[in-house]
Amino acid sequence: MKIVVIGGTGLIGSKLIRRFTAHGHDAVAAAPNTGVNTLTGEGLDEVLTGADVVVDVSNSPSFEAAAVMEFFTTSTTNVLAAEKKAGVGHHVALSIVGTERLPDNGYFAAKIAQEGLIEGSGVPYSLVHATQFFEFTLGIADAATTGNEVRIAPVKYQPMAGDDVADAVAKTAVGTPLNGRTEIAGPERTQMDDFIRDALALAGDPREVVADVHATYFGSELLDGSLVPEGDAHLGHIRYVDWVKGQAER
């Protein structure tokens, strides 16, 4: 089948392209650097011609609240309209576990708006809600650092490897539309401060992690269950310590 990946040159998108291609699908990466701009609509009609499935793993270039809302609502509206014209039978979008539990967060609010557009579009769809990716661990620590202290909320945390995310999204994409959501998470649940502390130790980073209930996560304070699945979730198999070893071997 022909599968178009919006954001197909990014972290998860490039992994999806490799997986779909390896399984014999016609996988096409749609991104500004391949001539497709979902904000303006440029190239959308052409790339979606003959497409069976569209997988949207694109991300906003800005995390500022108004900009991210504009990106996800405009981009998604344009993609869905082009899908209807092309007769696409399955729209898959990657979203975030806990979006509805942090409605004051500008990024999460934009993802909620995106999902609302998808749910009301009439195009058969599947939403894949993932926990945070291992790939952003050190960046999260950097954003929470003042001096030598890394202030992290002591809340439940269950991040996952990008490869596990791509496996789950790819499996969903070639299946029957859910017309609902599925949640995916890492194999191990811990506390966020403990996870970051262990991750820095693995990296030989001397910074001190301080548990702080008022520490913010992309601008929002967290409740204990803000970032983990509420019920059953499909779990990845890659542990963080093994992921780090794998990165070192590349």
Rank of each mutant, 00 (worst) to 15 (best):
L94D: 07
R181W: 00
L178Q: 06
K15P: 12
I184M: 02
A130R: 05
Y107C: 09
V174P: 10
T21L: 01
L127C: 10
L80G: 03
L138D: 00
H25E: 05
V97R: 02
A161K: 08
S226A: 14
A153P: 11
A144W: 01
A173K: 08
A86N: 00
T172A: 15
H25K: 08
A141P: 05
D104W: 08
K84W: 03
L102G: 13
K111G: 02
S62W: 07
V68Y: 12
V47K: 08
L200P: 08
F134N: 01
V88E: 01
A233Y: 00
A51V: 11
A201Q: 14
N37C: 13
D142V: 03
P177A: 02
D45V: 02
F195S: 04
A201I: 13
E249K: 09
D26V: 15
A66Y: 00
A65C: 13
G87R: 12
V155R: 12
G246Y: 06
F71P: 05
L138A: 00
I152A: 03
A29H: 09
E183R: 03
T9F: 01
F134P: 01
Y217L: 09
I17M: 11
L117K: 06
S126N: 04
D52V: 05
D56L: 07
E100D: 15
A161Y: 09
V54I: 10
A66H: 01
K85L: 12
Y217G: 13
P61F: 07
K85P: 00
T216R: 15
L48N: 06
L44G: 09
L94A: 09
Q247I: 15
I12K: 12
E135M: 04
D56T: 11
G10P: 14
V36S: 08
D232V: 11
V213D: 10
A30G: 05
A66I: 03
L11C: 08
V53S: 02
A93Y: 00
